[in-house]
Design a protein around this nucleic acid. Structure first.
Lengths: 252, 252
DNA sequence: CGCGACTTTGACAGATGTCAAGGCTTGTGG
DNA sequence: CCACAAGCCTTGACATCTGTCAAAGTCGCG
C-alpha cells in the first residue's frame, strides 16, 4: 500500500490522537475538512517568509523543511516534516509566516483553509486544544534541535537526527522498521544538522564503517539500532510517542 | 519604580495584548488569576524534567532558563525567560515537563494553578486563543535559536542574543534603553550560546574592543546599536514586537 | 553518449575547545 | 579593618574538530 492511498487527513488525526483524546464526532469533523492537494516541486518555497497565508498545509507525500536563513545565504532547516504533519498548523492562529516552507523533494501537500480550521475549532473546543497541544509538541522538538545543534558533535548529531526520524516514521505506521526513505541530499542533511556537506559525508562514512547505519540512495538502513541510539544520545521522550499510543491510534 | 511593584500578571497581560486583542473582561479575568509568589534560589531547578506539574510559572523578577542536557553533562539553555514571561504556559495543556526550568539567579516566580488557567480558558475561548498564540510566539523564538546556534559564528551569535534580549526587555517597558541587566555569568552565557565559557570571554572582549557592546558586572551596555544589530545579523521580526504595539500594550 | 547533480576524497586552514595558571571581586569572620 | 576563601573573569599555549577548496568519481537521465 502506498502512502498516498491513505486519506492523508487520517494520518493527521492519528497523530493528534497520540496525545489528545478525540470523540468520534470530532474525528469525523476533522476528516471532513476541505482540503485540496497540490504538487510542489523539488526545492520550491511554497510558503515565503513574511507572507500572509490563508490556509495551513498538510504533508501528504514527500518532505517539507522549515527554513531559517543567514545574511550570507547559508541556510538552516529548523524543522523537518513528514507525511501526516502540518508544518504550519500554527498559521491558523498566527497567519504571518515566521519562516519559509520548502519542499525538499517532489512532495504533495494539501491546503486546508484557515476558515475551515477556525470553524471547526469554534464548534469543537476540544479540537482546538488538540491543535494547541500539537503545536506544543512541535516546540518540544525544536527545543531538542537546539540541544542537538548546539551541544553534540557531528557524528552524534547525525545519529540523533536519524533516530528521531526513524521514530517519527515508525509512529505513522507507514515507513516502519530499520530501513526507511530519506529523500534528501547530503547538502540538505547538512542544512538540517548545521554542518557542511563535506563533513556530513565524512560522518556518514564513519557511521557505516562502525556498522551503525548506512545512508545511501536516499534511503537509511539502520545496521544496529542500539548503537545508533547510543551514539546519538537519543531519548525519545521528547517526541511523546509510545508503542501503545501507536497501537491506539491505529484504531482511530 | 522597581519591577516588583508592578502586578506581575499585568506584565503578562501586556505581553498577550501585543499579539491578541482582549476585551476588558478578559483582561480583568486574567489579572484576577490566583497566583502565589515563590522565591527560587540561584541555580535551582524548580521544574524537573519529566515531572508532572499542576501549575504554570510566571517570572516576576530574575531570569529563568529552560534546560536541555547531554549525556556527558554539558548543558544547553534552549530558552531564556524574563519577567512577564510564562516559561511553561504550555504545561497547562501538556503537564509532563519536557525540559527542566532553572533560575539563573535569585528569582521570584508566581505559581498559577492549571485548574485556574483551564477554568479561565473554558469561560473565555478568546483567551485560550491568546495563550495558544503566545506558545506559537515562543516557538518562533526557538526556531531562531536553532539558526543562531547552528549557523552563526561565535561573535555574531552573542551579538544576536544581546539584540534579542534588548528588544524583549524594551518591549516590557521595564528595562529600556541601551543599558540593561543581564544577571548571568559567562558560564551561563556559554550555555545559552552553545559556546565554551572561555570563548564567550574572548568574544565579549572583541565586542568591547570594537565598540559594539560591553558586558560587565552582570550588566550590558550597548555602545553602538546599529553595529550590534549588524554584527548579530539581527532582524526582530521573529519576536513579533513593534513600537506601536508596545504603546498599545501600555494602555492595557 | 554526455551532461548535470550528487558523492567522495585529500590537503590544508581556521574557529573553537581544552587546560592551566593567575588576577579580580565580594563577602565573611576574626 | 584585615585576611582569606570562593567564585568568577582573563589570558596564553596548544589541541581538535569542522570548514574550505579543489579534483575526481559515480549515478541517473535526456
Amino acid at each position: 500500500m502506498s502512502i498516498s492511498d491513505i486519506n492523508p487527513l487520517r494520518l493527521f488525526v492519528s497523530k493528534l490522537v497520540r496525545h489528545s483524546a478525540l470523540s468520534v464526532e470530532e474525528k469525523q469533523a476533522l476528516l471532513a475538512l476541505p482540503a485540496h492537494p497540490v504538487q510542489v516541486s523539488y526545492n520550491s518555497d511554497f510558503v515565503r517568509l513574511g507572507e500572509r497565508v490563508e490556509y495551513a498545509c498538510l504533508v501528504v507525500d514527500g518532505l517539507v523543511g522549515r527554513f531559517g536563513q543567514n545574511r550570507d545565504g547559508s541556510r538552516q532547516i529548523t524543522a523537518l516534516h513528514i507525511p501526516g504533519d502540518m508544518p504550519d498548523l500554527h498559521s491558523m492562529i498566527s497567519p504571518i509566516a515566521s519562516s519559509a516552507l520548502q519542499a525538499l523533494t517532489v512532495t504533495t501537500i494539501m491546503k486546508v483553509p484557515h476558515s475551515a480550521l477556525r470553524g471547526l475549532v469554534r464548534e469543537h473546543p476540544n479540537v482546538a486544544e488538540a491543535f494547541w497541544r500539537e503545536c506544543v509538541a512541535d516546540a518540544a522538538v525544536l527545543s531538542e534541535w537546539v540541544v542537538n545543534v548546539g551541544r553534540r558533535d557531528a557524528r552524534t548529531r547525525i545519529a540523533h537526527f536519524l533516530c528521531e526520524l526513524a521514530c517519527r516514521y515508525e509512529a505513522t505506521g507507514t515507513n516502519v522498521g530499520f530501513e526507511f526513505d530519506l529523500p534528501v541530499t547530503q547538502d540538505q542533511l547538512a542544512d538540517i544538522t548545521a554542518l557542511t556537506p563535506v563533513h556530513v559525508n565524512r560522518m556518514l562514512k564513519v557511521l557505516q564503517e562502525q556498522n551503525i547505519a548506512m545512508v545511501r540512495n536516499r534511503r537509511v538502513t539502520v545496521l544496529d539500532w542500539q548503537k545508533l541510539v547510543a551514539t546519538g544520545e537519543f531519548n525519545s521522550d521528547y517526541l511523546q510517542i509510545t508503542k501503545s499510543q501507536i497501537a491506539e491510534s491505529e484504531a482511530a
